[in-house]
């Protein structure tokens, strides 16, 4: 009775898990970035490999439990192990795991190690409890000075822009991120208080916004539309409502957006 139940339970576990992953996994949220394809490929490859490992290991366990259940008069074999099997198995998993990992390094290099594409649109993303502010450098292409002592939330100067710096005179600050489709963008991500994380599911981008540190993340959007930006690192009680938007628009719309919002 018990071994049969065990087989049934494991069988159900494997069947249901594979079914849900096979039917749910192809609907990772729609992909809208160029580098994201590499991430998705890696996720699907890992899903297939681990799916096989999962099924083989679980069903193997169920099979052994059933096959070697206690029966009248049965006797266990005195078996101490096998060095040869042990080495083979270790080498095989080592090659598989490390090999799989190395396949994923291309996209990592593209995002973090290689020089970022130039020219690119540069935007500054700043997290604060519990909002995101996005700054564009304006016509001159240069960001103006920021000073924590000049922050004034009541007057809307959330980033502490130095009004006396001419370079900052044309800077644009928005509550959401608007970028043109098909053009490289580099975000400079930071925070003015605690650690946040700028995450957009569809973009396959997720990066901590750390106070005192600037991290640069490149991407190229491939599809117009509006997408939700979520904070992905616990930042306090309002963490769950630290929501913003990513608008991917055509180049013409982007030019108009900059002109409309220029100070």
């Amino acid at each position: 009775m018990t071994p049969l139940l065990f087989v049934g339970m494991i069988g159900a576990l494997v069947a249901l898990t594979l079914y849900f992953f096979a039917t749910k996994a192809p609907i990772l949220p729609p992909l809208i970035s160029e580098h994201g394809q590499l991430i998705d490929d890696q996720i699907y490859l890992t899903l297939i490999i681990t799916g096989a490992i999962f099924a083989i290991a679980q069903l193997g366990l169920a099979f052994l439990v059933y096959k070697y259940r206690h029966r009248e008069g049965a006797k266990a074999t005195y078996l101490l192990g096998s060095h040869k099997l042990e080495y083979t198995w270790s080498a095989a998993t080592l090659v598989l795991f490390v090999g799989l990992n190395l396949m994923g390094q291309k996209v990592w290099a593209e995002m973090h190690l290689n020089e970022h594409p130039k020219p690119a649109i540069e935007v500054e993303v700043t997290g604060l409890q519990f909002k995101w502010y996005i700054r564009y450098p304006g016509k001159d292409g240069v960001f103006g000075r920021r000073d924590v002592n000049m922050i004034n939330d009541a007057e809307g100067n959330f980033l502490g822009l130095d009004k006396t710096d001419p370079k900052g005179a044309d800077d644009i600050v928005m509550g959401s991120l608007t970028v043109p489709v098909g053009v490289p963008v580099v975000m400079k991500i930071g925070s003015r208080d605690v650690i946040h994380n700028f995450g957009v599911r569809e973009l396959r981008v997720k990066q901590d916004a750390v106070p005192g540190l600037a991290v640069y993340i490149p991407f190229k959007a491939t599809q117009t539309g509006s997408y939700e930006v979520a904070c992905m690192e616990l930042c306090g009680y309002g963490h769950y409502q630290m929501r913003s938007q990513l608008n991917v628009v055509t180049m013409a719309e982007y030019t108009k957006f900059l002109a409309d919002n220029a100070p």
């Binding site: 576990l13 898990t17 990772l28 590499l38 991430i39 890696q42 996720i43 890992t46 490999i49 681990t50 490992i53 999962f54 290991a57 679980q58 366990l61 795991f97 799989l100 990992n101 994923g104 390094q105 996209v107 990592w108 995002m111 994380n197 599911r201 396959r204 981008v205 997720k206 992905m232």
Partner: peptide, 20 residues
């Protein structure tokens, strides 16, 4: 076994960009 499978995703720096 089931829990370890998740580790193979999360241990890959590239895949962790999505799952972190």
């Amino acid at each position: 076994v089931t829990g370890g499978i998740g580790g193979i995703f999360l241990g890959q720096n590239a895949v962790d960009i999505y799952f972190h």
